[in-house]
Write a protein that binds this DNA or RNA. Sequence first.
DNA 1: TTTCCTGCAAAAGCTTTGCAAGTAC
DNA 2: GTACTTGCAAAGCTTTTGCAGGAAA
Lengths: 151, 151
Amino acid sequence: METTRSQSARQEALRTVFDRCGLRLTRQREAVYSALCASDTHPTAEEIHRRVLDEGTISLATVYNTLQVLCEAGVCRKLATTDGSCRYDGGSHDHAHLCVVDTGELLDLPLDISDELLEGLSPHLLRRAADEMGVEIEQISVVLTGRRISN
Amino acid sequence: METTRSQSARQEALRTVFDRCGLRLTRQREAVYSALCASDTHPTAEEIHRRVLDEGTISLATVYNTLQVLCEAGVCRKLATTDGSCRYDGGSHDHAHLCVVDTGELLDLPLDISDELLEGLSPHLLRRAADEMGVEIEQISVVLTGRRISN
DNA sequence: TTTCCTGCAAAAGCTTTGCAAGTAC
DNA sequence: GTACTTGCAAAGCTTTTGCAGGAAA
């Protein structure tokens, strides 16, 4: 599913990010980041922990600490949910999500739809919002909440 | 700040909602709902508890239970945050929020901006998203994350 | 009177923290 | 060798739950 070449490319990319932030590249950090990127859902810290455990030892506390570090470095994002535990996104660009209330899942919308939706948010309006509220906008999040159609 | 007339109007509205859901109207439920509506920020359960305590006795557990009941009844909404505790919105219509990372605040955008932003999300696209994901969309949330401009 | 709601306290998550041992650089 | 990371366990938060007493209808 993934070539040796892209793996080392990712590792180099990761090394670059870590170097830039003055962070050391450890086995645990690499495993957490890989698990996060490999996932197509948005896993919770506990889910990442379970996946990484298959390939070696890591404590849940380290998963939390690593995710926090990665988020601060801008490599990944922490996503809000209403169900108690946060979820993480291996990317750092804005895109739209779907929260499925039946299951608690948090899914990406298809990329084309996501991009079009976000384009609908006028930069001029966003600028006005930022000015009126006295902030600099860092992220834009669109989340649809939906219920599975049962039939 | 608020006339007796609008208070009783609200109380009647609340009674209607409660009747429709087969729920009893108690002093605590009314106090929680009023505190929520009176707030212009989006309070956490703990903040609501503190405000309601000024006017009588209520336990934090009851605040949580009441908020859950009100959300299920569609009278208010639970808002997701990334900082551990959820926040609540006394309304039930979609509108855009601003999350201020410096303070953890969750604020409404000015209504005109909020409405225009949401109008930018094409119903046709939303419909397509719903179809492709196999869900029925219940809520649309737009959250800007921003950092206070310091100067 | 019956059924539902409240308060209390305890339990159940999720996340963070302190510190000794280990590892990247 | 030095400074940063990890693992463990414990603590800190937020939220939920069980149950006896109390209030709404």
